[in-house]
Simulated assay, not measured.
Amino acid sequence: MVSTIKSLPKLSVTAALFSVVLLLSACGSSGGSSAAQTSSPQGSSPVTTPVQAKTEAKVLTINFGYIPDMGGAAPVAIGEEKGFFKEEGIKLNAIKFLSGPPEFQAMASGDVDIAYIGPGAAFLSAQGQGNIIGLISLGKSDMVFATKKSGVQDWKGLKGKTVGVPKGTSGEMVLNLGLEKAGLKPSDVNIVNMDVAGAVTAYVAGKVDAVAIWSPYTVEIEKQIGKENMIKLGDNSSFFPDYSFPASWVVSPKFLKEKPELVEKFMKAMNKTTDYKISHIDEAVKLTAAYTQVPEDSLKQELDSREWIDSKKQAEVFKDGSAKKWFDNLQKLFVDNGKLTSVVPSENFLTTGPAIKAVQP
């Protein structure tokens, strides 16, 4: 080797030595980039090795619709902070909503793939607009409050009164159940459809006699006018055990059909976030508050209004048919309030496979 180099012109010797240094440097490098790329002729694109291609293919984007509360936003905050989505090769593009129906509209237009919804929006799944793939909690955070000056003390007192409510939500469901309990029909009340912010503002300003809303917005109302000025008529728990109110993960039917494996990865990541949230609730509140800018005390008060469903429990209620019964009963409410014309088999829109597979070793 040495004699060969000595016989070369000076420039060739330098070039040869430089090549040797490069070769040794490449062999001794511990960085992944040197190993993942091979040399290529001048002017052509670098050659990608199978290792590099596999790494790049792992990261897939999911457009995710969330609501800024402990059910919808905590998994996003925790999953990003702890790297649970990254572990499953997912990049979560989180988009904020204030209620479920607009999320379904975004899924229909292809802007959202998977979303968090409360029980009130589940009728849209029954209509075939989304497949429920996971469960977050059973809620009692939906409440109906009358104003003190309205003079309303119970459900019967709502007759002829004005109630602000975001229609198509679980708040409306609790309102309708309360009216039914009092022997009233929705037509006996002046129900005004409002968005969440509008309902809160109208209640605080005394523009409505009552409001059907949920935590943490109920907490914000209390802060502004004081608990003594709020007359609570009832919440979800007023109608247990006949009715349960599950919050869910719902996926676009098109996305589920085209990317079933990615949906399974999503459920694995969400199982991790849910179980971590339940076992580290104080940390979960702090992370969620920082992510949503909702005050920690508001989020903490929300905790009392939910029964969390961990990954093991989720698989159990999917397997034993409990979840099916919950949604069967919800559909009866949807028929009563005109959201559905008839009850359909809940298994038509309950896709339980991804959640069940996600807990398997």
Rank of each mutant, 00 (worst) to 15 (best):
D154A: 09
G151H: 03
L135D: 12
I221E: 00
M230H: 08
V204S: 07
A199G: 15
T147P: 02
K149F: 14
G171Q: 04
I231Y: 00
A199P: 00
Y217D: 15
A210D: 01
N229H: 09
K232D: 10
M143N: 13
E220D: 14
Q224D: 10
I225V: 14
M143V: 14
I225C: 10
V208T: 08
A197T: 14
L158D: 01
F239M: 02
I221T: 08
K161T: 03
G226I: 08
T218K: 11
V174M: 03
W155C: 06
Q153T: 15
G157H: 01
G139V: 07
K223I: 11
G198F: 06
K140W: 11
F240S: 13
P241S: 11
L177V: 03
P186T: 02
G206M: 08
K159S: 06
D154F: 03
I191K: 07
S170P: 10
L158P: 00
V189P: 07
L175I: 02
K185S: 15
D235W: 06
V152L: 00
K149R: 13
G164D: 08
S170N: 14
S237P: 02
G160E: 02
T218I: 10
S237K: 10
T169H: 03
Y217I: 14
F240M: 12
A210P: 04
P216F: 02
N176L: 04
L177Y: 03
L138N: 15
S215M: 13
P186Y: 03
G234T: 00
M173Q: 14
I225Q: 07
S150N: 03
S187F: 01
G226Y: 09
E172K: 03
M230Q: 04
A202W: 05
K148V: 10
T147N: 12
N190Y: 05
W214Q: 12
G206K: 11
S215H: 13
S170G: 15
L158M: 00
A197L: 13
G151D: 05
K185N: 13
Y217G: 11
W155R: 00
E220N: 14
T162W: 08
T218A: 10
S237Q: 12
D195I: 10
E180F: 09
P166F: 09
G139D: 11
S237F: 09
V163I: 09
